[in-house]
Write a protein that binds this DNA or RNA. Structure first.
Lengths: 350, 350
DNA sequence: CAGCTGGATGTGAGCGTTAACATCTCGCTG
DNA sequence: CAGCGAGATGTTAACGCTCACATCCAGCTG
């Protein structure tokens, strides 16, 4: 027999206690897995709980303990593959650790919005806040925040005081750049993300240092904003420059979506990939293998990022001072990269 | 002067009351916007709140009111564009209405997992649960659920007893099919989603009825699983059939990702789109305009879905019996569709 | 066998808020 | 000017739980 179907009054600990013939405190002890409860008493209580279908009221518990076993997740633009994936990893790790996740999706990555979101989470008595954002002002807000709970940043590559986990963007960018140089390209052009994105900057840094290490010229950075459409715009310009005779044979783009946009222009302009120009993206979207041609890209393990975020939170909650390593990225080589055109072979599709 | 920097003890209502020279109850009245507080008292209290940086403890409020002003969102696979987007709309609408959102991401869409998630939400004292899932067993679980809070389904197209909002999948599918027929194709093939997806079935139904209405033959349905890779697999088979002389000139795919996979095979096989075969997708991903060629697709307004989900929740909470209309989809025509090959023009790219 | 120790259990208080009710003070009306 | 109603405020009691402490009952030791 399950729960008293239509009893309006919700079950409370005292109901369980009455049924098991013990005090409410003993029920509490059983619920919270305390020691010093006689085995048979414990079993009796557990049976009562099961029969009644009792679940403790978390609000009451939160009131007295001050902890809700909830993690607040604040993020911008969850519609992107990366953040969504990270969130997935985070939620599942949190759940495994007995925490639930409350979300706040910022419309804009301003310090004020960030502060406000954290404030609301604090009022909600969350145990910790994880910030999933990579823009400067949000990061700035995070730094200046004086919250009464641990606040950890995920995916912010920077060396902050604030504890953070992230993918090693710089290494990823070097991997991409080196791959192209090793194929014989004289240099590698770069389409970066927005200037106020820490990740974008880290990728630029990696790209630049790899070029410099190889003694290759460092072309001017082109700017996109992560969207396919910005990749398309940059592509127009690039195609024009190539037509004008400029020696562009390899491009590293700061994400796959911009690469898609670029791919689209190049196709329209009759330029072959990788015949005329090689492309490397970043993120390795699930779609990347099905681009035309399949895109060489730097894979980031977003879910792992989420998991580590939770790890870090738990460590902070235990007062440990964990400083997690960056998650290593991996280069996935596909058909969008090849050697530079030896002779300008007209492999285009008229 | 903001908050007493390093005072360990958190602020409570009584602190504000003391500072404003009133009772805690008056503070409560001000906080909750009650009438019958003298204007100057109200102002004094508000100033005290601002000066102290006080925020009411939501757990305590939840304990006494039984409401947390929180909506529980349960979903599977948030990593897809659609659900992520819907979640975005939902969160922002919820926040606008003064609700926060707690999430639970199911690993698998089973009835048990669903039931468990809802249970946890109930223990958390959420005010309502929104289920963002389209699979049969989850829907089944939803139907059999006897939760003490409103549970609404989003995106489940079915005509359930359980209140739901959704996009009109069937109309979307008819739009796509009609477009292809109007271009002159004799019939339209369909690559569907998984059999246990309600959306997949609705799209099949729309496709079929449009074909029947037009007196066109109804080919056997091909199955994918929403992934680009399944689209790729189906594509292989399709290409072989076309090579064998079968008359396939138009394909409607149940989502854009599968269309991408199909596009990729067709390109490899040297079949032109739309020269040899026209393609229509579903969802209109932000990437769709940059596919090669740009994909004609049925746009769903996912964010609107989220907003309506919240609307529905609020209505239920007020005891209203709102039965929202389905969100209308729209066909976005791009370059992947055209008339069937009049003469088999070898427009392929060798 | 008194006296102790420690495991098992119960009792009472209090977490910070809201709701219900009590009170107090005006400004009217008759 | 007594009396009354309504608005403004205060007082008290929950809400359901955990924590600190009190109690009880063995089973020991000396």
């Amino acid at each position: 027999m399950q729960a008293e179907a239509a009893t309006a009054r919700p079950l409370v600990m005292a109901d369980v206690a009455a049924r098991a013939g013990v005090s409410h405190q003993t029920v509490s002890r059983v619920v919270n897995g305390h020691h010093s409860v006689a085995p048979d008493t414990r079993e009796r209580v557990q049976r009562a709980i099961a029969e009644l279908g009792y679940r403790p009221n978390l609000a009451a518990r939160a009131l007295v303990t001050g902890s809700t076993r909830t993690i607040g997740l604040v993020t911008v633009k969850i519609n992107q593959y990366g953040p969504a994936q990270t969130m997935l990893g985070l939620e599942s790790a949190a759940r495994a650790a007995g925490y639930s996740v409350s979300i706040s999706i910022l419309d804009e990555a301003t310090a004020a919005a960030m502060r406000d979101a954290v404030d609301r989470f604090v009022a909600q008595s969350v145990d910790a806040v994880v910030a999933l954002t990579t823009y400067d002002d949000a990061a700035e807000a995070l730094r200046s925040l004086d919250a009464p709970v641990p606040v950890v940043a995920v995916q912010v590559g920077g060396a902050d005081d604030r504890p953070a986990v992230g993918v090693d963007q710089e290494t990823g960018a070097r991997l991409a750049t080196r791959h192209l140089l090793e194929l014989g390209h004289r240099t590698v052009h770069h389409v970066a993300g927005p200037a106020d994105s820490q990740e974008a900057r880290a990728r630029i840094a990696g790209w630049r240092s790899e070029l410099e290490a190889a003694g290759a010229p460092v072309p001017a950075v082109m700017r996109g904003d992560w969207t396919p459409s910005s990749g398309h715009a940059v592509g127009r310009e690039l195609a024009a420059r190539m037509r004008a005779g400029e020696d562009v044979t390899a491009v590293f783009l700061a994400n796959d979506q911009m690469a898609l946009g670029l791919l689209s222009v190049l196709h329209d302009e009759g330029l072959a990939v990788p015949g005329d120009v090689s492309l490397v993206g970043f993120d390795d979207l699930p779609e990347a293998p099905y681009f035309t041609p399949p895109l060489t890209s730097v894979r980031q393990d977003f879910a792992e990022l989420g998991r580590r975020g939770v790890q870090l939170v738990l460590a902070r909650l235990n007062g440990e001072d964990l400083h997690p390593d960056a998650v290593p990225p991996a280069l996935i080589v596909r058909a969008s990269t090849g050697p530079p055109p030896g002779v300008p072979a007209p492999r285009t599709c008229a």
